[in-house]
Amino acid sequence: MRSEVVLVASRDRSPRIECRGGGIQARRTAADTVHLVSAAAMPLGGDTIDIRLIVEPGARLKLRSAAATVALPGAGTPTSHADWVIEVAGSLDVDLEPTVVAGAARHLSSVALFLHDGGLLRFRERVQIGRCGEREGFWSGSLRADRDGLPLLRHRVELGAGSLADDDISAPRAAINELRYPATCFEATPIDAGSTVLALAGGGTLSTWQADRLGG
């Protein structure tokens, strides 16, 4: 199944919402806030979720989700995909509930982010390999960010079975990654205390945290 969500935030009006495919729906829950809601058990292996966000100059958008996303293996393939294309000239805050890669599922996430003059951004993703007692899943996340046509960040993380840093003793199974722009400092929450913070040459900060399990 392929599900598509397009959100366009404009100044002085409610976000415009388009959803296709039926697996994911979007609901406006406040003047500048939209929640993603699963309308079916997805993603299963073989599913693709396409999300496009456009935040125009002077506009504000907060994107949240109603519950965690659970990636499950499908009958024909264990692999599902989530592809994001984001254009920001206003203010965007993305903080979804965690993605849980269950069983032997493989979930591949790709984010292409384009910041324009005046854009403000917070993009946070949380990932957990496995439900209780599960360690077989795999997640790959890539984040490519450009600012005014110039490279800002190229970031890629793998977790779980078959990842580059995997081992049976101490390899992490959970991660929190957060990109903020144009912030030059980062104050971690108690959940991701101990994170590593990198100041980007083009402005902004990237915070990364890894452990065996996500906190509270």
Rank of each mutant, 00 (worst) to 15 (best):
C19W: 03
A40V: 13
E97G: 00
G76P: 02
D95Y: 00
V101K: 02
H116Y: 12
H81Q: 13
V37I: 14
L61N: 05
A112R: 14
G45H: 05
L36V: 08
L63G: 03
Q128I: 07
L63T: 04
I129W: 01
T77S: 15
D95M: 03
L108E: 08
V127S: 02
T77K: 05
V100S: 07
G90W: 09
T48D: 04
R27P: 00
A105R: 06
A68H: 07
H35S: 10
G119W: 10
A41E: 01
L120I: 13
R131E: 01
V34Q: 01
G23M: 09
A102N: 03
A68I: 10
R64L: 15
H107R: 02
P73N: 11
G74N: 14
Q128A: 04
I49R: 06
H35L: 00
E134N: 09
Q25W: 03
R20F: 05
D32Q: 02
R28C: 00
F114M: 00
T77I: 13
A105Y: 08
V85R: 14
W84I: 15
F123Y: 13
C132L: 12
L115M: 08
T79G: 04
G21R: 02
A104I: 06
V127E: 05
V55F: 10
L115G: 00
V88I: 13
L61K: 09
L120M: 04
G23Q: 03
T77M: 10
L121T: 09
E136K: 14
T77W: 02
P98F: 05
R28M: 00
I17P: 06
R135I: 13
V101M: 05
E18F: 04
I17G: 02
R60L: 09
E87W: 13
V34C: 00
E134A: 07
L53C: 04
P78V: 14
I49Y: 12
G119H: 08
E97S: 06
G119K: 09
D95K: 07
R126W: 02
R28G: 00
R124I: 07
G74C: 14
L121N: 01
T33E: 06
D93K: 04
A59S: 09
G103Y: 04
H35I: 00
I54M: 02
C19Y: 04
D95W: 00
G130P: 03
Q25K: 08
T79R: 15
G21P: 07
I129M: 10
L113H: 02
G46I: 12
G22C: 07
P43D: 02
D83I: 15
L96I: 11
L92M: 09
G90F: 09
A105G: 06
S65M: 12
G46E: 08
V88Y: 05
I86P: 13
R106A: 08
K62H: 12
P57W: 03
H35V: 05
F123Q: 03
G21M: 08
L108P: 01
G133V: 07
T79A: 15
A71S: 15
S38F: 03
E56K: 08
R131K: 10
P78K: 05
L44Y: 02
L36F: 15
G45M: 10
